[in-house]
């Protein structure tokens, strides 16, 4: 029972098939996964292996066609209605006619927070993502990395314990990315959220995660789940330690295995 309570995402034999004009596309099949409270889970795999689809299924943006998916012990739909998660899309998806602070206020307005509460939360989350001072700017006045941080702040502004992030730093250069990764880890440690994070980068996955889910395409499935042995406290140079490299190696092998299976 106690086990069950701490389960944030639980997939049992999950499958998802899209009906398209060219016939059915199996995006996910036989996915089994447990995400526990406080986990940082990365999803890694080649393009088209269903990472986005899995995240969208958790978010109730797609419906599973097979198996069972529970979020916070309820259906994804109920979880969405309970505003259980914040979703960070690959593109920042800020509304261009709103200033940064108004963009962060968007979910708060919709969820009916008082003006005072909104103000407090905007200030807090903007500080959390290091954007203090840019409240009154419009999105186009910010760099890509800053826009992405604003979209993370927006997902953090309300009380969702689960953060779903779909390649949030995919479009950014490596220096900015390293910096944001560090900030994300700090934020995760401070807020004790559960994070599901999609990435194409092996070092990023290993650096961030407590659990790495390796996936492979056609049909999209999980080929390996790696529990990280790295400590929660992670300076950037942990990436040169043998332990780190060993995990990265295993991820790489998992990815390669997924491919050879295919050929």
């Amino acid at each position: 029972m106690a086990e069950n309570q701490s389960s944030v995402v639980s997939a049992k034999n999950l499958g998802l098939t899209f009906q398209t004009n060219d016939g059915p596309v199996v995006a996910l099949t036989g996915v089994n996964l447990e995400v526990k409270k406080g986990d940082f889970v990365s999803f890694i795999g080649p393009s088209g292996c269903g990472k986005t689809t899995f995240l969208r299924a958790i978010a109730d943006l797609e419906k599973a066609t097979e198996g069972e998916l529970r979020v916070n012990g309820t259906t994804p739909e109920d979880a969405r209605k309970n505003r259980a998660y914040g979703y960070v899309f690959q593109a920042a998806a800020l509304y261009p006619w709103r200033t940064i602070e108004k963009n962060i206020a968007l979910p708060l307005e919709i969820m009916g927070y008082s003006a005072q509460e909104q103000q407090a939360r905007i200030a807090r989350t903007m500080e959390l993502v290091n954007l203090t001072g840019f409240e009154k700017k419009f999105p186009w006045q910010l760099s890509g990395g800053m826009q992405q941080r604003a979209s993370i702040a927006r997902a953090l502004a309300f009380d969702a314990d689960l953060l779903l992030m779909d390649e949030p730093f995919g479009a950014l250069d490596e220096i900015v990315r390293d910096h944001l990764n560090q900030q994300l880890l700090e934020l995760w440690a401070r807020t004790n959220k559960t994070i599901c994070f999609v990435t194409h980068s092996i070092p990023e996955a290993v650096y961030l995660s407590t659990k790495i889910v390796v996936m492979s395409p056609r049909p999209g499935r999980v080929t390996d789940i790696i529990e990280s042995t790295l400590p929660r406290e992670r300076p950037l140079d942990i990436r040169e330690t043998p332990e780190f490299l060993a995990i990265a190696h295993r991820v790489r092998e998992g990815l390669a295995a997924g491919h050879s299976y295919d050929d």
Binding site: A59, L61, R83, Y87, A93, Y95, L106, P107, E109, I110
Partner: peptide, 23 residues
């Protein structure tokens, strides 16, 4: 993606109209 965002907030049609479609 802008509509999906509204969906994740469980926004109703009126909110989607005034905060997204109309602007």
């Amino acid at each position: 993606i802008q509509l999906d965002l509204m969906h994740t907030y469980n926004a109703n049609k009126t909110q989607i109209f005034w905060k997204l479609r109309f602007p």
